[in-house]
Design a binder for these strands. Structure first.
Lengths: 220, 220
DNA sequence: TCACACTCCTTAACGGTGTTAAATCCTTAA
DNA sequence: TTAAGGATTTAACACCGTTAAGGAGTGTGA
């Protein structure tokens, strides 16, 4: 029975959770598969290639197939849910954010992007701002989870002992910042607030946006 | 003449720009210093320790000493300028964002944080939201520059050849997203817009925030 | 049935990495 | 002059990604 690409990826993903991205060596992975390290070079051109495929595999396995918005759904809540899903997807595996940020997104995601843009344009965005909004939100989420998992790797519970009298504001606000879910939601909502305001400003009074027929083309 | 810590760090920073973070090995750095690799272990406990110190060294050298806001300056423009400075600082060196995100911030930054919070609280933020705002903005900037430098490492000018007919919106919006400065500013302003709105909502009508005397204590 | 071809994997090796242990210079202080 | 200790060297260990060459195993066409 030959070694299947998918078997390699599934094993790599499990191993990732065990040993982390830095511990994920080809030799270690090969041992896990009952095989010698160079065997992996028949299935992947090199380690980077394997990690690229691992990224999309993890994405698929987590079901990050951002569904097109249900008709009539508000764009902001739909976008917010997409970002929450993105965060959950990266949190699903150890070093998930590092993995996702360190490798190229699959070129096959263009149809998906086009669909998202179409929905936002229908909601009143210009095409430029729709693209900017998705990119910028994505960067926020990646930056957020990166730090979130960074803290998890080195359990940095230390460093919280300081003189409350010298730093009263940090003392007062500190606990609030430790609630990662609330913190994530705070930044997400602030950014969406800003986008809502802008869409209302340029999309509201401007009939060019309201009269346009839906541009959400059916893309594969 | 013994090897000085600062000499090591300065050389490491120069070497970083030459070979990138992945190419920055202890042996390579030692050769640059005219020394054997294990000599570095007298000055730093290990490579991670060296990188941690390199991070703060780069920060200091770039002059990221975010000045306290000049009296009367609007908090949002001051915060925006701080984030632009942060971005510039990371862009100043190759893999600067990876370096900054991969290592712990120095514990000596508490006084600075306390000052920032004090200014924001004076501007109408609650202590919790002030801390949330700074953290969340920082994550955005790091996520942004990380991707920005990622593109620079692998010069990914390729991948922009697609069928304009299948993806009309991407085609229309694509060029706008390539202007990194404008893109950065877009996300930054959207987030600040959201914060402005929230501060106005909770800080405006609520006298508890307006009547409070300035809490910007003088911290070292 | 033989021989070729192709898939998949192994063995061996190269040059590189971070890190440790031990020995050794070199400077300073007594 | 000797002792102490700061600063560095040499040697080595256990890894790493990657390449080259070759060998099993299977299928196919002559």
């Amino acid at each position: 029975m030959a070694l299947e690409r998918e078997t390699v990826l599934r094993t790599a993903l499990r191993l990732l959770d065990e040993v982390g991205l830095d511990g994920l060596s080809l030799r270690r992975l090969a041992k896990e598969l009952g095989v010698q390290a160079p065997a992996l070079y028949w299935h992947f051109t090199n380690k980077q290639d394997l990690l690229d495929h691992l990224t999309v595999f993890a994405r698929e396995e987590a079901g990050i197939t951002v569904e097109p918005p249900s008709a009539g759904a508000p764009w902001d809540e739909w976008l917010a849910e997409g970002m929450r899903t993105l965060r959950r997807g990266m949190l699903a595996h150890r070093d998930g954010a590092r993995l996702a940020s360190g490798n190229r997104p699959p070129p096959g995601s263009w149809p998906h992007i086009e669909r998202v843009l179409g929905f936002l344009v229908d909601a009143g965005f210009t095409a430029e701002d729709a693209l900017r909004a998705t990119i910028v939100l994505g960067h926020y989420v990646v930056g957020f989870v990166l730090d979130e998992q960074h803290d998890q790797e080195r359990q940095d519970d230390a460093g919280l002992d300081f003189d409350p009298q010298r730093f009263p504001l940090i003392t007062a606000a500190g606990p609030a910042a430790l609630d990662r879910d609330a913190l994530f939601e705070y930044g997400l909502q602030r950014m969406l607030d800003g986008m809502r305001a802008q869409v209302a400003a340029v999309g509201g009074p401007d009939p060019a946006h309201e009269d346009r027929p839906p541009t959400t083309a059916r893309q594969d």
